[in-house]
Simulated assay, not measured.
Amino acid sequence: MDIAAANEKQLLADIDRLREEFTQTQDLYREVCVLLFFRYGMTPTANKLYQLVRKGSMTAPAEALNKFWEDLREKSRVRIEHPDLPEVLKTAAGDLVATLWSAAQAQAHETLASFQGEAQVAVIEAKAALAAAEADLDKAHQTRQKVQQALGQANERIAALGQQLATGGATNAALESQLVQAKEENTSHQQLLEDARRDFAAELDKLRAAAQLAEERFRAAETRALLEIDRERRAAVKLQKELDAARNAGNLAAERHRAEVAALQDQLGDFRQKAGMLEGNLQAVITARDVAVTELKGIQTQLANATAQMSLLRTDAENWQRQAEEAKRTVAEMRDAQKPTRSPRKPKAE
């Protein structure tokens, strides 16, 4: 019966239990023989015993197996020689035991020879392994020396690194403290920056509102200035017409009023010069308006200049208004001056 056909797991568990109960090698092998033969119905062999127990030398299982068969033979002989057994049964039992004993002894001798051959091969292999192990041991000693040297160097390096680590730890602690302080300062700076941004945004909104108001005022002033200039231009056209009428009337009395006409021509030249000045001032106002509109895009830096330019425009407008009033007064004076010099004539019939 093969071991694989039996409950091998239970067999190994029983052998482990026997290991704990029997510490002597021969006793352990004997009990394993009993276990195999009587419980599992297996014929014990030295090879099988050694595979299961693996304790002691190669000859230990064979010796234990011989002792097992001797004990079994002795016990069987006692039972066979029992006086109550019939003679035929005694003879048959004796023949059976003798046969079993012969077979077991032959199997034991074969197993012993096999174990001896295996032992010799194992001895040769063990000697070769021992030589190789000794060579490996020499190499291991050399390697151990090198490793010890390297270990000494490594320990020195570790000590140096430990000092560096301690120094680095102190430096790291200082850096961490600086980092914490820097983070706190950064938080404070961020808060100040946010406050400054809010203040700047509020100030910018104020400046934008002021700039918009200034632009609206400037546009209103520009509109008023343009209206004034247009009004003065219409007045100048009207004056030109009146001057033309006065010139026609003066031509009728050219001989008598030559001196007055020359004076009027001088005044007319002055008026034309003033009208040209008004045109130039109008162009300057238009140019100043374009410059002011362009400068309004940079509100923060050009607001004061725009306000000053507006003041100048207002001053020019007032000057133009005064000049126009002076021109009106001059024309009125010219009309008043022309009235006494006309000769009284009867109106012509239509």
Rank of each mutant, 00 (worst) to 15 (best):
N155C: 05
V180A: 08
M277L: 14
A214E: 06
L296V: 01
T330S: 13
L89H: 03
L207R: 05
L137P: 03
G152S: 09
E21T: 13
R144S: 05
A103T: 08
L52P: 00
L18M: 04
A46K: 04
L35E: 02
Q323V: 04
A288N: 12
H257D: 09
L179E: 07
L204K: 05
D244Y: 12
E31T: 02
H189E: 06
A98E: 11
A129Y: 07
Q148P: 02
D205W: 02
Q309D: 05
A129W: 08
A98Q: 12
A4S: 10
V88M: 02
T330D: 13
E203T: 05
E232L: 15
R219P: 00
Y50F: 09
Q283N: 15
V293F: 06
R234V: 04
E31L: 04
W101M: 11
K75Q: 14
G94N: 09
G56A: 02
K206T: 13
A103R: 10
K55M: 04
L296Y: 02
D14C: 03
V237A: 15
A128F: 05
Q302P: 01
Q145G: 05
R247Y: 11
R272D: 15
H141Y: 08
E20V: 11
N172C: 08
T45W: 01
G56C: 02
Q107Y: 06
M1R: 08
Q107R: 09
R54Y: 02
